[in-house]
Design a protein around this nucleic acid. Structure first.
Lengths: 206, 206
DNA sequence: CATAAATTTGTACTCAGTCTAAGTTTGGCT
DNA sequence: AGCCAAACTTAGACTGAGTACAAATTTATG
């Protein structure tokens, strides 16, 4: 934790992380709708109001890092090598995310708290509210990319198609993960599918 | 209203439509979040419980015809001419929907109640909950199409990309509509964009 | 007309999320 | 050190969506 921040700020970050961690553990353990915000507050030894002070909705307790992801995506697009197409950028980023160490996006999040990524994604998959939140943030990502590309109608079309492909691929990874397949098997299915999908995207958009 | 239905069924359909009409009018008039379900119930002269008997959520009061749209889309895919690609099917359907008489999808819905489509879509656009509901149903449409295509990963990729394109185009139509442009101006922007977008889709997916 | 099934209703409840006013903690200052 | 003001937290009451259930009403059919 960033040590040269004002003491107050550091404490706030700690509290925030503590609440989110406690909440995530409870949600994964019992299911998202089965846990009330009041229970989260009690378990985190904080008042319900404080929970809503730090997080603007119950859903955000588990998806607390979405703003970071959005910033990362925007940066990815802006800082891509001169002349590289966005499709190529996302192809490389996606394939890199399939590398053993962080398959399924999940391990980037709190690997301590979620030693088993599967439980985390099962929790998300089983909750209509959390899936809705995912859709919302997917849309935001597409907007971010479209904006980074310039914001024209053509840019928005390109961003949306890339988003659609990534969404299906991530969905399939999750499906296979929840069906009990291991990283090796998943990679064997996803890598060729991704190569082909990004190829057609590249042909279409470049 | 289908006259050879059992009396009871006919009455239920009437009640359902009446509640939905009253609700839509109130939402368009005052905004979705500014109207409570209790107020809708009172205005429709029915109890709150009855409202939830007919509609499973407040959002469904305004989007009451989504199941029909989904069925229509599935039919569109299934009944397309032998040998015609889905992309071609959707291109034609989309372009047909731009014809003067039902621009903006909106006129298919209760043209009596919504003499001005703009107000209806402004209401939707101003409500986070309604936009979330739209995203959910867009996802369902994509699933329906993917299923109608066969349900493989490649089918899901194709359906998602078509959905992405349609989503952006509809979004742009709405944006222009809310910016005060008339059908003529909108068509002038959208038709060429759609032609180009569906062309690239066809190149990519066929 | 009677009666059983289907609908509707009132009431009471849970939970997310907001508001407010009062309490507590903290950093900065003398 | 000790005080003050700003920042943070809290309790508690409130709103509104959605659910549960049992009582009351309506309707189809004999």
């Amino acid at each position: 934790m960033d040590p040269d921040l004002p003491l107050r700020e550091r404490k706030k970050l700690q509290t925030r992380k503590h609440i989110s961690d406690v909440a995530t553990r409870l949600f994964v353990q019992h299911g998202f709708e089965a846990v009330t915000v009041a229970e989260v507050a009690a378990a985190a030894e904080v008042s319900k109001m404080t929970v809503f002070n730090y997080f603007s909705s119950k859903e955000d307790l588990i998806f607390d890092d979405l703003p970071l992801v959005a910033r990362r995506v925007a940066q990815l697009v802006r800082d891509r090598p001169r002349g590289q197409s966005v499709v190529e950028t996302f192809r490389q980023d996606f394939l890199a995310s399939l590398e053993p160490h962080d398959l399924a996006e999940g391990v980037r999040r709190n690997s301590v708290l979620h030693p088993d990524t599967v439980h985390f994604w099962r929790t998300v998959q089983n909750s209509p509210a959390l899936r809705a939140r995912e859709r919302e943030s997917a849309e935001q990502m597409v907007e971010v990319v479209a904006e980074a590309l310039g914001g024209t109608l053509a840019d928005r079309l390109a961003a949306a198609q890339i988003g659609a492909v990534l969404g299906v691929l991530h969905g399939e990874i999750r499906r296979l993960l929840l069906a009990g397949q291991d990283s090796e098997q998943i990679r064997a299915v996803i890598v060729p599918a991704a190569e082909s999908a990004f190829d057609t995207l590249a042909r279409a958009l470049n």
